[in-house]
């Protein structure tokens, strides 16, 4: 699958992306690969603004017709903003996972945590390996 994962951001092993806004916050969402596996996202449970999250702990829930999946926070911190548009248009995640389909903005507790995430190239290799294993 010819997925292009933008190289302006970092990626988690659980298929989230984090874009460093340079102001102590990151914007996060799920990757194109993740939305492709889920297909037809019909519901997103967003966190409350102000909620405290830990790195790689659940911050949101996305549901397709068939399945329920946790979305993990790529960093520890406070939820600063959520993408309310997803309440009425959860399909934005399918249509534009790296843009209009963003899920939340998080104020980082510990910016050094970003080092535990992957660059786009490494993430692309990881999902290709996962796909090979499935065959």
């Amino acid at each position: 699958m010819a997925t292009v994962n933008p190289d302006d951001r970092l990626y988690s092993e659980e298929h989230e992306w984090a874009l460093d806004n340079g102001d102590g916050t990151i914007t996060m969402g799920i990757t194109d690969h993740a939305q492709e596996l889920l297909t037809d996202i019909v519901y997103v449970e967003l966190p409350e603004v102000g909620k405290k999250v830990k790195q790689m702990e659940p911050v949101a829930v996305v549901e397709s017709v068939k399945s329920v999946s946790d979305v993990y926070s790529p960093v520890s911190g406070d939820v600063a903003e959520v993408n309310d548009a997803l309440e009425d248009q959860p399909e934005l995640i399918n249509e534009d996972p790296y843009g209009e389909g963003w899920i939340a903005r998080i104020t980082m507790d510990e910016p050094a945590e970003l080092d535990r995430l992957m660059e786009a190239a490494a993430y692309t290799v990881m999902i290709e390996e996962e796909e090979d294993e499935e065959e």
Partner: peptide, 8 residues
């Protein structure tokens, strides 16, 4: 087969 394209 659970789906060929998408459920919807």
């Amino acid at each position: 087969p659970v789906q060929y394209t998408t459920v919807i």
